[in-house]
Design a protein around this nucleic acid. Structure first.
Lengths: 143, 143
DNA sequence: ACAAGTTACATTGCGGGCGATGGACCGGCA
DNA sequence: TGCCGGTCCATCGCCCGCAATGTAACTTGT
């Protein structure tokens, strides 16, 4: 059976994710954050004091991954975990000053990562690609 | 600054890769291979006896990743590593009967994974998406 | 022929994804 | 009240990506 991996969305998506991740990693490491931490930062920039569970509900990440990511972020001085006032099982996540201050630069870094791999795309091509990606992701989610 | 992660190709590409990887993983585990092993299998189905270096040249994977992947594949009975006849540093990689026999089913599994996330796509949409992905990957590669 | 540089591979440590499991805690119901 | 199922989180083992480093073996230039 013929099978060209360059015609496989599965294979290409893995290459694509590696490329984007590398682009973000390069730009993020100067600021002090890793690619996997960016979505968490995004949520916390818009609202602090969320519990781990609330973060899980907002992001497409498993609980085990979140726990490990938060542990690394705490270690790296991006985040503080405080006891929940009424629920002793839970914790609330707060940003450090360092993390709060990098918001603007970090978002610019993420936009730059996007831009670098999408250079040469016309506006409608970029939009179409994003839309196709969202469609495929939706197909995967409802399964 | 406004930043919607659903408009970020970086974020979407990571979700997309996770979705496709999961789709392939589900289908592949019955047969006994993991997603990261599939590209290696593809190369070996088309030509056995390649060295690790030759595999590296054909795939977009780092040497350390390849060494570990091959070690797992050997452990799982998919692959044999034999000494290179003239170069004692090198090794030649051969498939086991088990790996050789799963070629057809494995390729069908990969096609099914692709298909499952691309359901609802018209033919030209699928082609366009693949083309956009290849373009973005090319942007990343030449940097 | 031999030292020096290059190449092939393994190993280690880390980021980040997953499922499975376990402990502490909450809440509801008898 | 006291028990019991569900919830929040940490932890462990695994896959898979990377950079950095080490070792053995090959090659090349003198």
């Amino acid at each position: 059976m013929a099978f060209d991996r360059m015609d496989s969305a599965t294979y290409l998506s893995s290459l694509l994710a590696k490329s984007f991740s590398r682009a973000l990693q390069e730009r993020g490491q100067k600021l002090g954050f890793a690619p996997g931490q960016f979505p968490v930062l995004l949520e916390l920039w818009s609202e602090e004091g969320l519990t781990q569970k609330q973060l899980l509900d907002r992001l497409d990440i498993e609980q085990a991954t979140m726990a490990n990511t938060l542990a690394r972020m705490e270690r790296d001085g991006l985040v503080l975990r405080k006891k929940h006032p009424t629920d002793k099982r839970a914790q609330q996540i707060f940003l450090t000053a360092k993390a709060r201050e990098m918001e603007r630069e970090a978002k610019e870094a993420a936009l730059a990562a996007d831009q670098s791999l999408l250079s040469g795309f016309r506006h409608f091509e970029r939009e179409l690609m994003l839309e196709y990606m969202r469609m495929a992701i939706a197909n995967g989610a409802q399964s």
